[in-house]
Amino acid sequence: MSRARRASTRAPLWLLLPAAVVLGGLFLYPMYQLGLLSVLDFTQAQVSGGQPTRFVGAENYTRLLGDSRFWEVLLSTVLFAAACVLATLAVGAGLAVLLTRVSRIPRLLLSLAAMAAWAVPAVSGSTTWMFLFDTDLGFVNQLLGIEGFNWMYDRYTAFGLVGAVVVWASFPFVMVTLYAGIEAVPKSVLEAAALDGAGAWRSFWQIMVPILRPVLAIVVIQSVIWDFKVFTQIYIMTRGGGLAGQNLTLNVYAYQQAFASSEYGRGAAIGVVMTLILLAVTLVYLRALRRSGEQL
């Protein structure tokens, strides 16, 4: 009896083992290495064995946190990511609702268009948008009659354009996920609300959004993580951070400061800080959800 019970309490551990092995190999070990690198003086000379590796403690962190440039970049990254998340959610949710309202053919066309945008690799997408918005020869500038207008010259038009590309590439995920969620909302509930006199707006906010909350949570966390880590679009469209670095985001900054200049210890420190920020954002969001009564 007792042996059987012990076996049954151990069973979950055995069942978790494959996942634990995979996570340990693919997640924990690299995280450990990242943390280790971030407390070492580790540059190209150490990689190729020309100089011994040196433990520097928190020096990489103190230098990073003491750098005013880092805080500027962090602030613009947070604001840029927040704007992108909001825009992605608004566009994705709006089109998801639209999908449920239109007939089959337009729905198919819209889905196909969105899938195409989703499927385009970030590098190709960014480059295509660059062609469209080229200063002298771009289609958009010629259409608007503003040849010679450089979208990348002003900090905010540059961020706006890059943001549009980020949203364009990431709204399909939000749209598809929310569309599936909306389709799963029981029709009877909506009918009951309609009978009670609720309009479209009211039934969206008071019926659909609460039912969709778990789906929304996933979509929001995904978007936050994606948009916080945006690299390709910024790197390609603003040629590595924009005029005088005005469009740097944290990932491009890390690449520039650390990997392109072979300061792997410093880069690892930035990586750890980014991971902590994302973890914190995710935890705060999950807590807020839990407090509002939702079990995840």
């Binding site: 010259y153 590595g240 005029l243 005088a244 005005q246 200049s261 300061e263």
Partner: peptide
Amino acid sequence: DPGWGKIDASAVLPTMIEKVATGK
């Protein structure tokens, strides 16, 4: 100097020129 690679990669000189050229 091995530090030149870092100066080059973190675009110190272009940033300096661009700041002046754009009036920042």
